[in-house]
Design a protein around this nucleic acid. Structure first.
Lengths: 215, 215
DNA sequence: TTAAATAGTTAGCATAGACTAACAAATTTA
DNA sequence: TAAATTTGTTAGTCTATGCTAACTATTTAA
């Protein structure tokens, strides 16, 4: 089986490929907190396994095989997060680190059972799509709250950033997925937004708005 | 943190210490399916960490510190097995391999939550005691069915062997923990036992009886 | 009680995955 | 466009954990 190291690289590469399409060595090194030479040698190894296309000094490309393998790991991660929240009562800000470890468990039955007990969920607690067993993944067609105009009424569907601090911030503002948000005003100067939801008003910074995905 | 390797060695050493009190290198090597020199060097390392007492050519002794650390790992393993059976619907013959992986997860909250959801169980699905958070573990005071005499009526409490094959055999005979068994006859020649339980009779081999713990 | 068998040890080596130092290519900017 | 900066690469090293071959100590059995 593939080592946890390999799985971690693959996951990071997959995520960067989605975010920017171009994957570069430095980005991987930063995401994994590892040196550039470490990335370089692992990248060559992954290329040798047919998971990446690698040419010296060129941006990396993930192959279909690599993409599928990464999606299966991400499936395990996201199913686990959903399970921890829905069946074990954890908060959405607590589950990342645990899922990060459970995603490496080798047992199809374990994750299939989670999936079944959860009723085959489409999305994880942060709104990210859960790939299916074949590594197919729904594309996220939400827009950022930051791109909405005053008067619009939208529903919070997902987050494009899921750090603990951000999730705790959202908790403190009672912002949860599914909530209906009305945009009242946009400050021209700094793009702060005054919004209304759950019977009260808040001012959200442009930074926060950019990470809230709505439709 | 300790590596998975270290944790696996410690667990095996702990189990052997319970079973035989004397721990020897060869036993560890067989249990972990690694070479003798690998065990030798790891044993020195564990001794250096204060988890074992090691003297050349002498039997190994686990220290209190090592014992506690091992018990905490076994706690995670057994809680996981219980959780998989009770909350996820797995059979007792399916859970070992999954628990073997989950036991290495570093997250007190994760296992504490399992414990809580299970209602703080004392024993795992095979009747083995679950150590508490401080590494204290109840001693098993059951006797083997093989030591019982005709006419006795006992309850199946635990197993002293838990291989998949044995568990599947028990499934096929409808033998579960908690079942009441009456000893009808013991064959002097081979110590086979004729027993009655759940409204029918069975003949159990001496080998099987020796692995069934009752009281 | 000595020879054979078993158990434990040492030395030396392999692989995975990380690192630093030094260098080369590509890109940005003055 | 040439210099400076950033990005990527290579070479060589380190640690963890495994291995085999060769040797030594201990235990068992003839």
């Amino acid at each position: 089986m593939n080592s946890q190291s390999i799985e971690n690289y693959l996951k990071v590469i997959f995520n960067q490929a989605i975010a920017t399409d171009e994957v570069n060595t430095t980005g991987i090194a930063q995401a994994l907190e590892v040196s550039l030479p470490s990335v370089n040698s692992m990248v060559k190894k992954l290329a040798g396994m047919g998971l990446l296309e690698y040419q010296k000094y060129k941006p990396l490309k993930i192959t279909e095989k690599g993409r599928q393998m990464a999606a299966r790991i991400i499936r395990k991660h996201r199913l686990t997060e959903m399970y921890l929240v829905e069946k074990m009562g954890f908060g959405w800000e607590e589950v990342h680190d645990i899922a990060e470890q459970l995603e490496h468990v080798q047992s199809a039955a374990f994750f299939d059972r989670m999936d079944e007990l959860l009723g085959y969920p489409q999305r994880d607690p942060h709104g990210s799509p859960i790939p299916n067993k074949n590594g197919q993944i729904a594309t996220q067609e939400y827009q950022s709250l930051a791109d909405c105009r005053p008067g619009e009424q939208v529903e919070l569907k997902a987050l494009s950033h899921t750090s603990d601090e951000f999730l705790k911030y959202l908790n403190s503002k009672d912002l949860k997925l599914g909530i209906k948000v009305e945009i009242l005003e946009v400050e021209a100067f700094d793009r702060n937004m005054k919004v209304a939801y759950g019977g009260h008003q808040e001012v959200l910074s442009a930074l926060v708005c950019s990470k809230l995905l709505v439709s």
